[in-house]
Design a protein around this nucleic acid. Structure first.
Length: 528
RNA sequence: GCGCCUGUAGCUCAGCUGGAUAGAGCAACGGACUUCUAAUCCGUAGGUCGCAGGUUCAAAUCCUGCCAGGCGUACCA
């Protein structure tokens, strides 16, 4: 049996609420759907007097039209709830971890990391707003070969600065920042490192470089409005023996076996396409081993659910990590991966040339410096994260209606301006007034009230589906509805009662815009 | 080869837990500022929802096959 639904139709002609009940019941009752609908409509009770009319339409839909006064109470709800309007207890206090960015500390963040940062940060805000206990975490890949490669890269540049001839291998980090780090070491230590054992020198360079780069990442993210509750070091998993413990744990569970001199995790038993090596023939653990340990550690800290935000190029890892979670005794639905597609950076429609190999890429810092945090975050959140995103620097800088951030922020600024004006005219307090609110009956006003009343469900569906862009689309729609209203009706009129009602409504719009933008991490300016 | 993602207006994308006539912005064209911010609004035009089958009273949405693009398929990190 198809589900019975009650929904808000897309077309105004179909009323405010609509149900397919009669159509679903038709086959059970063996009666024509329209006849069932008629019986229902004839027997409707409306004790609150909110119903304007009910109509039977199409194959047997029942469409309900509601009176204006049914929508008006939402305004008082918004004013009473304030910055909590849209919040809910949906998460029931369950704890959830969102891990995102987690870029290797081997170079500065680029635009793609910015998208992941915006998505993860906003997702965390939304989940917290919906009653989850949220922790935001950054996983620092500060161990393994890449860090040594970083150290080697810096040490080579250092030797170069000391006047030695060097070969700079292709698999070393090519960016100019490597030279900057080398120069800093040279200024600090002179040629002292040349006299140390090479491995010690490389190790020194590695630690210093990783620390410096991580500091840079931290401050870039901070300037982008992104902060973390926990910065988790991969190296700490080795230092505390957590990786060994995990391998022993898997041995106890019978999840690993030896083959060809290596130790394999039987991930294919949990849906992966093949088994994976955790300890190599040479005795060294793989990256995957520490990843298993890391995820075990997450759950052992008591999180009900774990969300990892990854770049789309890592999607091949989902089955094996999911397998590891399940093999560790947790349910696979406690683990979610949000795959963020790549960002194409454009300038005026032309692709910005970026070569990772040559280390030439536009950093997040550059982009944020050029277009601003608000524009960057809003654009990152203006698409489903699974679609590739064209980020046009020229467009992002434009202060026009081509740029959706300003379109939304402008609503907030406009309303603030009206409120200032109202205060000058002696309407300082915008309080609830039943007779004033009852005057809000224009079609554009009803549409505005309806739109406002949908904000809580937009937030919740955003949390349920882990899709921050739903908030962005809600805000753009609300902004559009508001701008239309603004151009058609005056808020401050000669009629004081009507003006109070409209001010009350417009202030509610402002609050909802503010709440929505806050979830996205975008500011709500009072003047523009 | 196998796996994942994407294919909707000229462009960029929503809609995809099935509902009525498939939406928005940009671009094009035509209008609206002596009036609360024109960073705005109104109107016109624009479509075989990649293709073909299937399920259903109903499919952009679910299933199958195919086509096109992107990505991934290490005892690398």
């Amino acid at each position: 049996m198809p589900p019975i639904s009650i929904e808000e139709p897309k077309a105004d002609a179909h009323g405010d609420l609509s149900t397919n009940f009669a159509m679903v019941a038709a086959s059970l009752q063996k009666m024509p759907p329209r006849k069932i609908a008629a019986a229902i409509v004839d027997n409707l009770q409306d004790s609150d007097g909110l119903l304007e009319k009910a109509e039977i339409a199409g194959p047997g839909f029942i469409n309900f039209f509601v009176k204006p006064k049914a929508w008006q109470p939402v305004l008082q709800q918004i004013h009473l709830a304030g910055e909590r309007y849209g919040a809910s207890a949906f998460g029931k206090g369950r704890s959830i971890q969102v891990e995102f960015v987690s870029a290797n500390p081997t170079g500065p963040l680029h635009v793609g990391h910015g998208r992941g940062a915006a998505v993860g940060d906003s997702m965390g805000n939304i989940l917290a707003y919906c009653g989850f206990q949220v922790e935001k975490e950054y996983y620092i890949n500060d161990s393994g070969r890449q860090i040594r490669t970083l150290g080697l890269s810096v040490f080579l540049r250092y030797q170069e600065l000391c006047g030695r001839k060097i070969d700079f291998p292709e698999d070393c980090y090519q960016g100019a920042y490597i030279r900057d780090l080398a120069l800093r070491i040279k200024n600090d230590k002179g040629d002292q490192l040349l006299h140390e054992k090479q491995e010690d020198a490389i190790g020194f360079c590695a630690r210093l470089a990783a620390d410096e780069i991580l500091d840079g990442i931290r401050s870039d993210l901070n300037d982008f409005g992104v902060t973390f509750d926990v910065w988790f070091s991969e190296q700490s998993l080795y230092d505390t023996g957590r990786v060994d413990k995990t391998i022993k744990d898997f041995q106890r569970r019978g999840s690993v076996y030896e083959h060809d001199g290596a130790l394999w995790f039987g991930s294919s038993a949990f849906g992966d396409e093949k088994d994976r090596v955790v300890v190599r023939k040479n005795g060294l653990t793989t990256y995957f081993a520490s990843d298993i340990a890391y995820h075990q550690d997450k759950y052992s800290r008591g999180f009900d659910r774990v969300i990892d935000v990854w770049g789309a190029d890592h999607h091949g890892y989902i089955p094996r990590v999911t397998a590891a979670v399940e093999a560790s005794g947790y349910r696979r639905n406690q683990f979610h991966v949000i795959l963020v597609q790549l960002v194409n950076l454009l300038r005026g429609g032309e692709p910005v040339a970026m070569s990772t190999r040559a280390g030439e890429f536009v950093t997040l810092r550059d982009v944020v410096g050029e277009v601003g945090t608000d524009a960057a975050r809003f654009i990152f959140l203006s698409r489903h994260y699974e679609s590739p995103l064209d980020f046009d620097l020229e467009l992002a800088k434009q202060k026009s209606n081509d740029n959706p951030v300003y379109y939304v922020q402008y609503v907030h600024a406009r309303i603030c301006s009206m409120i200032r004006k109202a205060a000058e005219n002696g309407i300082g307090d915008i309080d609830y007034d039943e007779t004033a609110v009852a005057r809000l009956t224009e079609p554009e006003e009803i549409l505005l009230l309806k739109t406002l009343s949908r904000f809580p469900e937009a937030v919740q569906s955003s949390a349920e589906n882990l899709e921050p862009h739903r908030i962005t689309f809600f805000l753009m729609n609300l902004a559009s509805v508001f701008h239309t209203y603004y151009n058609k009706h005056r808020v401050l009129t000669d009629d004081p009662v009507l003006s109070r009602g409209r001010l009350y409504m417009v202030e509610a719009v402002r609050k909802v815009i503010q709440n929505g933008l806050a979830l996205l991490g975008v500011s709500a300016p009072e003047k523009m």
